[in-house]
Design a binder for these strands. Sequence first.
DNA 1: GAGCCGACTTGGATCGATCCAGTACGCCGG
DNA 2: CCGGCGTACTGGATCGATCCAAGTCGGCTC
Lengths: 340, 340
Amino acid sequence: MARRTGRAPTLATVAQTAGVSRQTVSNALNSPHLLRPETLARVQSAIDELGYSPNRAARQLRTRASQLIGLRVEPASEGTANALMDRFLHSLVESSNDAGYHVLLFSGGEASDPLAGYDDLLRSTAVDAFVVTDTYRGNPQAGLLAQRGAPFVAFGRPWREPVAEHPWVDVDGRAGVVLAVEHLLARGHERVAWIGWHKGSHIGEDRRSGWHDTLHAHGLSTTRLSARGDDTLDFGRRAALALLDSEQPTAIVCASDTLAMGVLHALAETGRVPGRDVAVTGFDDSIAAQVVPPGLTSVRQPLEAVAQEIIDVLGELLGHREVTERGRLLTPTLSVRNSS
Amino acid sequence: MARRTGRAPTLATVAQTAGVSRQTVSNALNSPHLLRPETLARVQSAIDELGYSPNRAARQLRTRASQLIGLRVEPASEGTANALMDRFLHSLVESSNDAGYHVLLFSGGEASDPLAGYDDLLRSTAVDAFVVTDTYRGNPQAGLLAQRGAPFVAFGRPWREPVAEHPWVDVDGRAGVVLAVEHLLARGHERVAWIGWHKGSHIGEDRRSGWHDTLHAHGLSTTRLSARGDDTLDFGRRAALALLDSEQPTAIVCASDTLAMGVLHALAETGRVPGRDVAVTGFDDSIAAQVVPPGLTSVRQPLEAVAQEIIDVLGELLGHREVTERGRLLTPTLSVRNSS
DNA sequence: GAGCCGACTTGGATCGATCCAGTACGCCGG
DNA sequence: CCGGCGTACTGGATCGATCCAAGTCGGCTC
């Protein structure tokens, strides 16, 4: 293992130790098939003996590839049940590492400039590509990055311009809500309410359509059973109180775990027990959903698969191979707990 | 702004455009005080005009500094209320960027090898330093990294060897629990129970001592009011059921939000209302604590400050300045909610 | 006006891996 | 024994920013 020398061993050191030239060592690393097995073994043992790893900066300088993927972390939002990012990040790091990449995090400063941070990393050739996740707000980066010819993959569909050229991976939110509603119908519920986001949200309307269409397909009414507002605990709570008061739904389907937690607040305040008196479902399968008593049924996004797909697409992009599909849509599952 | 040329502008391009030499441009970037204001301005405008950013790989190769900080992400633990990482990560990225660094994430593969991933990044000079956070399990990396002479800062005290030489930043868990207990005492509670971790856990015992000593200081008993076990929902639930059954505490202080959520489960099952019938406090101020009805009082770690301290210390380490203190201990606060 | 100082600028060498063109060598058929 | 061919290996040039030692020039003093 690593000999204690003043400086880290270089490719030249290895070459000297193995009694071959630098290029041969380079080939041993990058194109081992060019070497006679015997030579390869000799080089390998020299590498092991010296504890050599190629200097990334030098390699990066020559090959113009950093093996880094940039991801901007958005300001954390407290008081929201959504800890999507945590799970996604883990999965992304795993998938990246398996593919020989690393994830570089940066922050975007103020939200005012959607490109803040991106530009500099791009120009200084610090990263090979980006993963863009902020698709909840219409994803203004996508267009701008595309303009600059920056390679990137988006987590989330380009709702505004469905013909966008950039590759993306997304989860079928509508299908997730359909799962939740079907589950509730199977349990005998007939008055199923919806609490979701403002009309302007494409994602919100997509999810809501799963509720709306499934009920109609089963000949059930949706009239007056829908509430739309902010993605906050408080809106969920107030919407639930109002619905329970006037429409007496037996189940409430929510567009997010945050809203669902708000509903649980409303139930607790009015002495109702979730799952017994009123069924509740959320969306994202957040940690809060997993640990809140008595357990919140929630739509779970397959983030591991999303991360893997993103890295796959990125590999195709960067390998200058043809990207097989522009967009890929994955299907969520339902984590059933005692709230339904 | 960025001219559309085939290749990114280099320092030489800028020099030519500004009518100066390369070195002058380099000085404009790294030691602007060496330039006449007039020249500096000329170089600056050339830089702006061309949209130039220094190539990171080249700079890294020459200066042997990548401006990257490595952080290993541990396998995500589902079903645990602890979303510390998320908040900490955000803060760390912010602080890093402010100091001119970026955070590089990598995964460690199997837990079997505590150094997995570190070694390669170190030898390939991919990162300048590490932040080590896995101090909950005795932090085996610290010693090994120190041996290799790798610069790093630990989030968490070196409990096993308090004389360790490496710099660290930690939060005073004991003081946090003292806050929680004092808060409960002020509300009139006299039978305050503890649910915590196994005796082997240094952190657990440190936090527990806050409970133990505060009660004794107020002349209150701790006899039979303490339970220790795994950091799981289920243990919290079972311990609470047992305590409530036999000792009738009026308040329960927990070593973690996960345990506290378990206690909430127990209360819900036995028809008790948190905050009214029994007070509960957790530790970490996780998202779950913030959104669970009716709100869980919890000790909040000052993670933003921790991240800032860590980056400060790293700056000292990497700048070859003297590290002013080996360890820095920060004090948490208490987020009071309706469970107490 | 010569001498000198200091501020500013210059070209060449360097970091370490890869690209490129070219050389040595073994094998074969003629 | 020679020429042709392909494999395996070699030395020099290159990526782009920084380090280094030396050079230029204006201004100042005597």
